[in-house]
Design a protein around this nucleic acid. Structure first.
Lengths: 201, 201, 201, 201
DNA sequence: CATGAATGAGGTTTCATTCAT
DNA sequence: CATGAATGAAACCTCATTCAT
């Protein structure tokens, strides 16, 4: 569909799931990294051309890997989700159930402050960058930590998962939009987490 | 060489703030209302053309009233700020100091859910829509309510104003971005406000 | 045709050649003067709005007097032409035939340097501001002076009127476009006029 | 966080002046040619859209090559200046010093009659299309020819370079604005050049 | 596969002109 | 008659996307 010229050796077709050539995979990674940076700095309305420049590739290369800007955003989010879920698993495996939940909450907020708009985009399922399962995985990861913390008595019994997700969303968004200082972010986060702890603390 | 009388660089008038003609004021209001709606629905990147269409005026009319898109956004925020501060004053005047603070917090979150991106824009001083005093007024209004509530023992003594503002920002942003249901918003808000109440509740 | 309200006293019609009311005539003059200035400063692409502002009237008033920007330009030129022809007549009547021609040439160039683009517009009959007779009158005025000077032996016998007009056009345009200093303009003008004088000088 | 390599703010390239691709160079040339035509016919206020149409490209292509209309005008002038200076060099190298000066003067006027407004724009340094050196080069080229002619006794000794430039400017502008016939242009030019020749002729 | 030039719809803004007040 | 707000057709410019090299 792309070129019709006879590329006998490779077949001339565009098999979707062929393992990428080494340089192509390298480019893909660089583009994703650049996009994360650029969108974090300039917001999701930054131009694709700037992403290409930052990645050190030509604009065409970006569109070969991600046929649409939306695809690029979706890929960023998928990659990010993987990272975040991985962190959750690590905390679940290694750490104290009573603190893992709070640590993870804090980690998300800190991350969002670093990687910018992207965590925000993650929640913007409303504008439907990708149907559903984006935040679902994150919710799942969070759910396990929450359950464990609740069993350990570190979290109030009546706290529900959707409230937790809402509080994460709020805090990350707020941190981004508000331009909080490190100190303010810490104090604000502490207040919110306190709201989830049992009465006597 | 001829007459040097009546040289005004812009409009030939002397009084800078002439009261607008009736139809002009009507249009200005319609444009503001339309803009609030459109930006709430589509985000701040919605087109001015659409604002004009929604307001039922031609594109030129929008630009006569607001020479720049930025000016339009600034005007929306100013109007909104007025409304919000007004509500704070009303609550301070009329109500129970112990509850006014919490009522106002809730009012802001509810409002943001209704009027959309705009409260968000209010906090986006980072992109510098208008120097500083945008959120300052709101902060002032909030400060009075907070003090009163603290004196009434309804708010913990160690709660600081910047934390309150941060929590408002977070909650409104979260509510907008997260697309929370009414029920979820209520519960999430309750959790956050609980974090501000004295230990014994 | 304008308002249908009962203005019994004036009749409600727009008779084209009714003597203007005093204030209307005053406005017309101020607009013309302002337009001359503005177009001289900013070129013919200056906005009508600026002309109105400079004249101290509203934009509608300009268009009531001159239904089209082109009409306004034409009126300026007509007025200017009158002034210029008047000066020619004065020189013809009063002065030394041998010098009147050269004085007039110089006067036109000086004027153009003062009143700017407008004399230029006068020649832009190519872009057809008004069919023909604009420059014709000027040519006529110039013709008389030229004939007199020729008879007085102050101008070479083979100089033809169209050449003179061409030289005026060139010099005025050049003076405008080139931004010549007073000194340069004087010397350049002297060169050109020398070309019209008899060999022995 | 990822790679910091290849960060170029605009294009990701290192060599600033990469030779244009064949089709790009072709388009650039076509755009310049079209622009010269269009501006000659319609004046410098002609629309960029029309230039694009005349060149047979889309509007975006024009703006890729010339990010601003001003840039396009500047490029035209630069190209033209090159052509004109080249002609001066050719005349200086090949021809009779006594006539080269006059030939060049005539060539400039003829050219301006062909290529229209552009020579005019060249002089519009007032509107500052490009700092200074536009007309400087032309002046330099003219200066050499003038000196040579003066040494050959073909030009009066007291003629100064700025007067020559002023006369060129005037003649080209006049020719453009006045819409002179070929015959009139020739006669007018002859008058002006005569003014530069020694008395006895 | 990578490149980067070309495309063209759409956005903001200006301005001559009309028309309600 | 004067006023000045409304109109709407361009103008300039941007940017996601396509496609020849």
């Amino acid at each position: 569909m792309l070129s019709t010229a006879g590329r006998a050796s490779t077949g001339g077709t565009v098999t979707p799931e062929r393992p990428l050539r080494a340089d192509a995979r390298r480019n893909r990674a660089r583009i994703l990294a650049a996009a994360e940076e650029v969108f974090a700095e300039r917001g999701a309305s930054a131009s694709t051309e700037e992403v290409a420049a930052r990645a050190g590739v030509a604009i065409g290369t970006v569109f070969r890997h991600f046929p649409t800007k939306r695809d690029l955003l979706a890929a960023i989010m998928k990659e990010l989700r993987g990272r975040l879920v991985g962190k959750a698993d690590a905390l679940a495996a290694e750490g104290d159930p009573a603190t893992a939940f709070f640590d993870y909450f804090g980690y998300l907020v800190e991350s969002s402050a670093r990687i910018g708009t992207v965590v925000g985009l993650l929640a913007e399922e409303g504008t439907a960058i990708e149907p559903g399962a984006q935040i679902t995985a994150l919710t799942g990861a969070f759910g396990s930590l929450l359950d464990a913390a609740r069993r350990a008595g570190a979290v109030r019994g009546d706290v529900r998962l959707d409230e937790v997700m809402a509080l994460v969303t709020a805090t990350t968004h707020g941190a981004l939009a508000g331009g909080w200082s490190d100190d303010l972010r810490r104090r604000t986060l502490a207040r919110i987490l306190d709201a989830l702890r049992p009465a006597g603390r």
